[in-house]
Design a protein around this nucleic acid. Sequence first.
RNA 1: GCCGAGGUGGCGGAAUUGGCAGACGCGUAUGCCUUAGGAGCAUAUGCCCUUGUGGUGUGAGGGUUCGACUCCCUCCCUCGGCACCA
Length: 774
Amino acid sequence: MKYDFNKIEKKWQDYWENNNCYKTDTNLDKPKLYVLDMFPYPSGEGIHVGHLKGYVATDIYSRYKRLKGFNVLHPMGWDAFGLPAENYAIKHGIHPKITTKKNIDNIKRQMMDAGLSYDWDREINTTDKDYYKWTQWIFVKLFENGLAYKKMLPINWCPSCKTGLANEEVVDGKCERCGTLTTKKDIDQWVLKITDYAEQLLDGLDDIDWPDKIKEMQKNWIGKSEGFEFDFKIEDKLVSVFTTRIDTLFGCTYLVLSPEHPLVDEINFENKDEVSGYIEKAKNKSERERIAEVKDKTGVELKGIKAINPINGKEVPVFIADYVLSNYGTGAIMAVPAHDERDYDFAKKYNLEITEVVKDDILINSSQFNGLTSEKAKEEIGKHLGATKKINYKLRDWLFSRQRYWGEPIPIINCSKCGPVVETNLPLELPEVEKYEPTGTGDSPLAGIESWVNVTCPKCGGNAKRETNTMPQWAGSCWYYFRYLDNKNDDSFVGKELEEKWLPVDLYVGGAEHAVLHLLYARFWHKFLFNIGYASTKEPFYKLRNIGLVLAYDGQKMSKSKGNVVSPDEVIKNYGADTLRIYEMFMGPFEQAIQWNEQGLKGVNRFLNKLWGIEVKEESSPEVVIYVDKMINRIENELEKMKFNTPIAFLMEFIDFVSRHDLGKKEMEKILIVFSVFAPHFSEELWERLGNKESILKQQWPNVNLVEDEEFSLMIQVNGKLRDKDVFNSNISKEELIEEVKKREKIKKWIDDKEIEDIVYVPKRLINIVLCAE
RNA sequence: GCCGAGGUGGCGGAAUUGGCAGACGCGUAUGCCUUAGGAGCAUAUGCCCUUGUGGUGUGAGGGUUCGACUCCCUCCCUCGGCACCA
C-alpha cells in the first residue's frame, strides 16, 4: 500500500504558501528563537543533498520549537556576490545579475520542494542595492572609526583570479577558490584593522556554545603569545627581539635577523655580497618553497660583527635567515638552540654552540638566576633587564579590497588633496560595465568607466577619482543576520527594538569550512557594531553546530567534476521530499560525515509506506497509550540535544510494536504531530484524513503522561556476570527481592555452597551477588 | 611537530551518561506470496566451540570498580585544522 507522495507534497506545499503558514510575526508576545542557516551562494548547479542536510536539520528543529510554543524566526537569503557568476559573465558576456537571478529561482524552488519552512517575506540578497547600501554604510563606519585604512603592501595575489586575497583565503600557499599558487604583489590596498579586535575576539569565545574545534581554530588563528621585548646591541645600534622564553636568555648563542630587517642596511660587515645574494634569493622564494624548506633551514652570518647579550655581556654571532619572519614580533630573535627546535636545527647545521640552561623546569648555567623555576626566572630576568612585557598575535589585518567586478563598490573617493573621502550618497551602485575581465594591474574593471571614476571631491570640490576596488565575498555575510529582522527598513540597517529583541542568533548551522573566514569576520563586524552602539550583544551567534558532509556513494566528497553529486531533485522525484528529509537525518549524527547510500533511502521509504498503511482503531490498547507517551518523551529529549537520527529509530520500533497491538485515533494524532517535524507533507495528509480541519502546523507538541511501570525487568548477576533475568512487581521490597532471587534454580547453581560477600542492588535494574574469592 | 574530533558486526550507526553491548536501518540467508521480481511479507543474522544454565567480544595493553564502549594511565591508528608566529 504505497502513498502518492508526488500528489500529496504538491498539495501541501501549495497550501502552506497560500496560507502564509511560515510567516513570522516578530512582535508576538511569545519566547523568541532565532534559527539560522548559513545562507548559500546561488550557484548554477543548485544545491545538492549535502547542503540540504543542514537545512533539513534546522527545519526540523524550527518546526519542533514552533509546536513547543516558541516564536521561531527561520529565514533564508543569498550570498550572491562572488566569482562563479563573474567568471561566467567573462566567458559568456551575460551580466552576473541575470545568472544570479536564475540560480536563485532554481534553488528557492529546490528548497520549497523539500518542504523547508522558511519565511520568504524576509528573503535577502547581498547584491541588491538596498542591501549593499548597508554593507557600504558599515564600511563607512569602520572607516570613520579608523578601522579601515589604505596601505601599499605586499599582498597575497592569485594570478588566475587576478585579485588580492586575505590571509584566511590562502590555504597551503594556494588560492582558496581556484587552487592556483599565490604570489606576492605590492598593491595599494584597503585593509580592515581586525587586529585591534584580537583580544575581544579571543575573550568572546568563552561565552558562546560552539564546537571546540571551531573555537580552537579561531584561537590558533589569532595566535596570542605573551612575552618580553628587549634590545641586543650590535656596534652602536640596538636590535629589538621578542621572546616568550626570556628565562632561557643565558642559552642564547646567536642572534637572527629576518632577511627584510632594516638593520642590514645600517651596519657594516665584511661579506656584503654574500648577504645581499642571500636576501635576494629569500625574497624570490614562493610561499610554496618556504613551506617546503621548513626542515632544511638556511642562513648566512654577518661576518666581522657580534651582538652583545644584555644579560651577561657575552658576544654572539649574528645571522640572517629566512626562518625568522619579518612581519611577526620585531623581525629578529635571540636564538636558544637548547630550548627551541628551530634554533636547534639551525645550530646543528651551522655548527653553533648549544648551551642548556633549563633542566626539569629549573634554571642552570644562568649565574645568579640558577635554581629558579622557569616561571619565576621569566619575571626576574625581565625585571633585571627592564624588558617590556609584550603580547603578539599571529592574526593579521584583513585585506579588504578585490580587483574584481562583482562585489560591493567601496564607497570612497580618492582626492589628491584631501586623501580618502567618504561617499555620502549611499548606495553607491555598482555600474554597468562592458568588460568584466579583471585587468590584472591591480585595478578592477570599474577603472575603465571614466564617467564613473572621475568625480569631484565632496570636500574641496577638486578633481578626484572613485575607489575602483570592490569588497570581498565575505562582506555581505558579515551582518546579514541583522537584516532578516527588518529587511525592508530604509532608514537603518536594522530597527533598534527588533535588534534588541531578537539577537543573538540562538542556533546557527553550517559547514566547518568557515571557521576562520566568515565566522571570524562576522564576529569582528558584530563586535565593532556593538562597540559603536548599534548591536546590543557582544556575540552574533550564541550556539553554533556544524553539519557533517554528505559524501558520495564512493566515499568521496561530492563534486561536479567527479560527477558524483546527488541532486535532491532526482531523489524527490523518485521517493518524495519526506523520504529524503528523513533519510538525511537517519543516516547518522548530523555533525558527522557519512556516505550516501541509495539502499538506505529505500529503507526509509519502506518505513513511510508502513506507517501510511497502519490501521487506526477507535481506541488504543492500554499498553499503546503508555508506549506512545513514553516514546514522545524520548523523542523530545533527543530533539533538545539536536539528535535527529534516534527519534526516527524510535518511530520505526513503534511500528513494529503496534503491529501486535491496537492503535487508536487519539494516539495516532499525537504521533502525527510529532512526526510532522520530520515529514510535514505526509503528516498533514494523514492528519486531514483523520478528520482534522485545521493544519497540523497549528497544533501543540503533545503533553505526555508518564506513568510508573507496574513491573520492571531485573538483571540478575553473579560476580558481575549476567546469569538470569525476570520481571517483578514494582512494589516488591529489596529484602523480598533478594530472597526471591536466591531461591532461583539458575542462581543457586552459580552460588553453589560459596559464601556471599556482598549483594549490590540497583533499584529496578539489577542485582549482583558477589561471592567470596576462593 | 602542535591542536581538535574519533576508533563498536559485512556496512551506516544505538547504548537512559558506570548497569542486558550491537537498538534502528542497510546487506545477507531461508521460507512464504507471485506468471515474474532488483516488489511485498515472515524468520534468522557479532565471533568461537564440545550447541550450553558455555566461552569470548567495543583499536592494543594496564588500572579503578561488585560491574567499564563509558572513568584514569601508556601506546597505536584514522579523519579534520594549523604549521618556521620565537
